[in-house]
Design a protein around this nucleic acid. Structure first.
Lengths: 150, 150
DNA sequence: CAGGATCCAGTAGGATACTG
DNA sequence: CAGTATCCTACTGGATCCTG
């Protein structure tokens, strides 16, 4: 029996970083990306549409600051700027300044950003797709709570 | 031409809930689940292993409170309790009390929880798997910042 | 063991005002 | 337009103490 299969080696490589550990850098990274604004910005830049190739959804494309701001309703400019800076620093979006007047700034997903968006999209879609079910469970739970209080 | 294809109808059904809108309930749900503790609790209960059927990872199984607490290093009992309650209320985990002495409480993923875990696992693994790359980008970015300050 | 209840510091994040 | 800077509040979340 082989002492090391491909999947085992991959498992070991992954085990270098373990988000279960407080001290592991990946824990902080997990914390950073587990953020609704990150999910929404990536979804916006990623086109939020179906998988690449489909015709109905919007395509991934560079977006301007104001455009993002409008798409993600309720986001403050502070949070949008902060999120974009963080994503830029981590190599997930590029920021392009065109010296028109007034200046034009566009943001676009990098390869790394697209890979993250692939998984983050799932979160947003899960939330949208399971809203009813969650709501039902909440009603049940809250009922049981008040019933128990007699 | 058909006025409504299957994928179009599905798109409409999804559009009922749109997390891009502040007022949409799915926005709050997205906010709830975009949380590192949620990601880690689901990963722990889900076995964190490879896809179901694989042999190397741990299997999804009920876990006790203290066990979860140990697995997710750095979590306070407050946050763990709070996260578990929230997941229970939303129908993603079940809480089972066995009246031993002292009492034994186990948590287990529901079907809904497993479906969410399927997407949340991606986040944790992405963080672990792209840590190096992100770190490199950060160095570059921080360098450019100090270079620009001359 | 598995929490509930409190207290309290730190920070996330909104509102507002100003700038190139 | 695309931010930066500042102020300020509210909530997150840790620490601690207590209970069935």
């Amino acid at each position: 029996m082989p002492t090391s299969t491909a999947s085992q080696r991959r498992a070991v490589a992954k085990a270098e970083y373990d988000a279960f550990l407080v001290a592991c850098p990946s824990r902080q990274l997990l914390e950073r990306i587990s953020d609704k604004w990150v999910a929404l910005v990536l979804a916006a830049l990623g086109g939020d549409g179906p998988r690449p190739g489909a015709a109905s959804g919007d395509e991934p494309r560079p977006m301007r600051f104001s455009e993002l701001s409008r798409r993600i309703s309720g986001v403050s400019q502070k949070m949008l700027t902060q999120t974009l800076r963080s994503l830029e620093r981590d190599g997930m979006v590029t920021r392009t300044v065109t010296p028109t007047v007034p200046v034009t700034v566009t943001y676009e997903l990098t390869g790394l950003g697209r890979s993250l968006q692939g998984v983050m999209r799932g979160i947003k879609e899960w939330a949208e797709g399971h809203m009813e079910e969650v709501l039902t469970h909440r009603d049940d739970y809250d009922h049981r709570q008040s019933d128990a209080a007699d």
